[in-house]
Design a protein around this nucleic acid. Structure first.
Lengths: 123, 123
DNA sequence: GTTACTAGTTACTTAAAGTTAACCCGTAAC
DNA sequence: GTTACGGGTTAACTTTAAGTAACTAGTAAC
């Protein structure tokens, strides 16, 4: 990234872009859901399975967040013609680009945690 | 990043790390403030200057967010012995590591914006 | 002594995000 | 016909984040 020191228009563009990203991917669950779907790309991730697996999420939130992600083309919903009808969700190719964000967040958080521990133990 | 497909402990670690990051850097203003301070590293960034420059922020929020950032060692506060006393803020070396997060957020947001535009104009 | 500047704080209000629990529909087993 | 499962929805509520506005304190010029 070229860092345009103090260049106001470039800064503003950056800030807008950052806000866009946070609007789409922010909140308590969106990145967790994407992470879940990315890591289990080759499983049948049905609604109930996700509700069970993603700790603490309620049906309402899962439903809402999946809709939001679908509207932003990050997730695909597909109805399966099974005994009791099931619906499975998967990341789209576009959705996978979110790893660009997930990875740094995980990485920084891990390093931060290690720093805190190192600080506390004094070494 | 090694992607441990479906490996539950590794997934959980990732999710915790991601939450840590979002706890520290999430919210409406923290990344904007860090971005501001990183881009203007060599200026005297006083409280009032930041209040004027960062569009839409109130003194209350600026004060609170700066305290949080300071507590997490991302920002340094220093009182200057000037005519009317001033206080200036700067990123710490550790704070600069947040560019690891800021860059992908800016980058993804920019690409997303372009995608939306491309879609709308049909090309 | 009143105005002005910097650097905040305090109390109150509003808006957004998230939670809880109950409910609905269709299908199919018992 | 009642119980159970999958995939949700709805309403009511709580919590948290953020915004507004008024105010304080120290210093200094007028």
């Amino acid at each position: 990234m070229k860092i345009p020191k103090g260049d106001p228009p470039a800064c503003t563009q950056n800030l807008l872009a950052m806000r866009d990203t946070l609007d789409i991917l922010g909140g308590k669950w969106k990145l967790l859901i994407l992470h879940y779907l990315i890591f289990r790309e080759h499983e049948q991730n049905t609604f109930k399975k996700m509700e069970r697996d993603i700790e603490g999420i309620s049906a309402k939130m899962l439903s809402k967040e999946l809709k939001d992600l679908e509207n932003n083309l990050l997730v695909k919903r597909q109805v399966n013609d099974t005994k009791p009808i099931t619906v499975s969700y998967s990341v789209t190719e576009y959705g996978k680009t979110a790893t660009e964000i997930i990875f740094p967040l995980v990485s920084w958080g891990t390093k931060h945690r290690n720093m805190i521990i190192t600080q506390q133990t004094g070494r």
